[in-house]
Computed example of a mutant assay.
Amino acid sequence: MIRLLLVLLMTLLASAAHADELRPGYLEFTQKSEHEWALVWKSPMRGGFTPATSPVLPKACAIKSVTSRAITGASVTTNSIVHCNGDVAGQSIGLEKFDTAQSDVLARVAPLGRPVQALRLTPAEPMAEIRMRPNRWQVASTYFIIGVEHILFGYDHLLFVVCLVLLLNGLWTIAKAATAFTLAHSITLIGTTLGFLGLPQRPVEAIIALSIMFLAIEIMKKDPNKPRLSERLPWLVAFVFGLLHGFGFAGALNEIGLPESDVPTALLTFNLGVEAGQLLVVGVSLATLAALQRMGEAGAARVVKIVTYAIGSISAYWLVERTIG
Rank of each mutant, 00 (worst) to 15 (best):
D20Q: 12
T192A: 14
V281S: 10
L292S: 05
A107Q: 06
T78N: 00
M1E: 06
V76N: 05
R108Y: 02
A14W: 12
Q31D: 08
V204K: 02
P115I: 10
A107D: 04
S285W: 11
S92L: 13
I217L: 07
F98H: 12
P123S: 10
L39G: 05
A101Y: 11
V116Y: 03
A38N: 05
W37K: 03
S141D: 09
G48A: 08
T50R: 13
G198N: 03
P203I: 13
G170T: 12
L233F: 15
P134M: 14
W41V: 04
S15V: 04
R322C: 11
V284C: 13
Q31V: 06
D20N: 09
S315Y: 07
A175E: 06
I207Q: 02
S103D: 15
L194V: 14
V162K: 06
N254D: 06
A180R: 00
L199M: 12
F160W: 10
R114W: 04
P264K: 01
L189G: 04
K59L: 04
F144W: 08
A101C: 15
E205M: 04
S261N: 15
L39N: 02
A250Q: 09
M213W: 10
C61E: 04
S103R: 11
F247V: 06
P234V: 05
W37L: 06
A238N: 07
R46T: 15
H185M: 04
I311V: 15
K64M: 06
L253F: 08
A216S: 10
P123L: 07
A184M: 11
I314V: 15
N85V: 10
V304N: 02
G48S: 11
